[in-house]
Design a binder for these strands. Structure first.
Lengths: 212, 212
DNA sequence: ACTACCTTGTGAACAAATTCACAAGCTACT
DNA sequence: AGTAGCTTGTGAATTTGTTCACAAGGTAGT
C-alpha cells in the first residue's frame, strides 16, 4: 500500500466522528462537501483522502453514512477492541484510565503499572495497579496491543525500550521528551508544554492565522 | 514576518528543550548536527528552521548554547510568565492544574473554573475552583492570557465562544471535537482518541514506518 | 428515453516543506 | 600570513501535500 500521510489519517478520524454523530441523528447520506464543512477542510481534500483507500461514494448522490462509517472504522482499525495498558499511575495516568472517551472508541484500559510500592495494589480508574516488574511478561503473554506512557521524562525511554523488547508495536507517550523506537513500532508523543509553546509563539509573534 | 509553519515551531520547542538539558550539564557549544540528532531531524532542517528568525551561529564553530537558548525562548514567547486558566475541573483538568511541567516553562495556572456547584469552592491542584459565571469578567480584567479546556465535547464550542468574546487569544482544548474560533485566536486541540486511532491505523495497515 | 442537475474520483497544476549542495566565514595550527 | 578543517546560512532541487477542474457516472422528473 502507498504511504499514507499522517495528516490524512487525522482527517479520517475527524470524518468518522462526524459520520457517527450525524448517523446517530438518523442521517443516511452525506457529501464530501458536508464532511469538509464539518471537518474544516475542502471537499476535494475529503475525496482525495478517501481515494487512497477505494471509492465509497455514488456520483451524484454522495456517501452512505453507515457504509462510510463502517469502512472508515475498518481502515482505522477500529473493528475490534484494543487492550491498552497505562504505565505510570500518577494524576494523568489515573485520569486517562477512567476516561470514558476511550472505551467508546474500542480502547479498553485493562492494566495500569507503576514502580512505586505505595501505588501498587491500589486501584486507579477501576483497575488495580500492578508492579511494573510484571509488565514485560504481561505484554509477552499478549495482554496488550497498545501502551500509554504517563511516566516522568527521565524514565520514558527506558519504558519504551522495555515494552518494545517485549514485542509491543504501538505507544502513545505523554512524557515531555523525545523518544526513539525501532522502525516497526509506531510511537506518538503528546507534549502539552510544547502545545502551549505553540500558543505563546503565536501570541508573541503577532500572528493572526488560526492554526488548528 | 513570513508565515512560519507549525512544524517549525514544534521543532523549535524540541531544540530548546535539548539546549536547556545540555546547558544544565554545562555544555557551552553545540552544532546543527547535534541538535538534529537529538531532535530526530537533519542538520539542514535545523539551520533552515533557525534561519527564519535570524542567524545565531558561528560558521566553523556552531551555536553558543546559552545564547541560542535565550533567543529561542524569546522567539517562543517564553521570556515572561503566562497566566493560564483551566476550564473544567474534572480528572484531566485537576491533573493538569497540578502538573509541574507547566510551571517550569513559565505557565502558571492561576484559575480553575467549573459549572458544577459540587466542585465550586473546592480546591483543584492547589487552586480554588470558581464558578464559570466569573470567567468572562476575569478574562476581561486581564487575569489570563491562555485558557485550557477540559470540558465535555458538547460544551467546548460554547466555552470557546465565551472566552474569545471576552478577548482571549490562545486556547488549548482537550475536548474530543472540532472547534472553530475567530482568525485572530490561536486554537489548538489535543484529541487523545484521535492519537490512538493513528496508532491502530498503523497497527492494522502497516508493519513499518515509525512516524514520530 | 431524454434532459437537467448533482457529486464523485482523479490527473494535472500548484503550493508548501524538506533536503541538497556549496560558497562564505570562522578557528587553530604552523 | 597562509592553509586545513569545520560548520553555518541559503538558493536551488526535490519531495510531499493540497487544490483545481472536469469527465464520468449516477438520480429524478417528465
Amino acid at each position: 500500500m502507498k504511504r499514507i500521510a499522517e495528516s490524512t489519517v487525522r482527517r479520517l478520524s475527524i470524518y468518522l466522528s462526524f459520520l457517527e454523530e450525524i448517523g446517530a441523528r438518523g442521517v443516511l447520506t452525506t457529501s464530501s462537501d458536508d464532511l469538509a464543512r464539518l471537518g474544516g477542510t475542502t471537499s476535494a481534500q475529503v475525496r482525495k483522502d478517501l481515494s487512497f483507500f477505494g471509492s465509497f461514494g455514488k456520483r451524484g448522490l454522495g456517501y452512505s453514512v453507515p457504509e462510510l462509517s463502517t469502512r472508515l472504522r475498518e481502515i482505522l482499525g477500529l473493528g475490534n477492541k484494543w487492550n491498552v495498558c497505562i504505565v505510570g499511575a500518577g494524576k494523568i495516568g489515573a485520569a486517562l484510565a477512567r476516561y470514558a472517551g476511550f472505551a467508546e472508541r474500542g480502547f479498553v484500559v485493562t492494566g495500569v503499572y507503576d514502580s512505586d510500592p505505595h501505588k501498587i495494589g491500589k486501584t486507579s480508574g477501576g483497575v488495580t495497579v500492578r508492579d511494573i516488574a510484571h509488565l514485560e511478561g504481561d505484554i509477552k503473554s499478549g495482554a496488550y496491543q497498545i501502551a500509554i506512557l504517563t511516566v516522568p521524562a527521565e524514565n520514558a525511554q527506558h519504558i519504551v525500550d522495555l515494552v518494545t523488547k517485549a514485542g509491543l508495536k504501538a505507544i502513545l507517550s505523554f512524557a515531555p521528551t523525545r523518544l526513539t523506537a525501532p522502525a516497526d513500532v509506531t510511537l506518538r508523543t503528546v507534549n502539552m508544554a510544547m502545545e502551549l509553546e505553540g500558543l505563546t509563539f503565536a501570541l508573541t509573534n503577532r500572528g493572526s492565522d488560526n492554526q488548528q
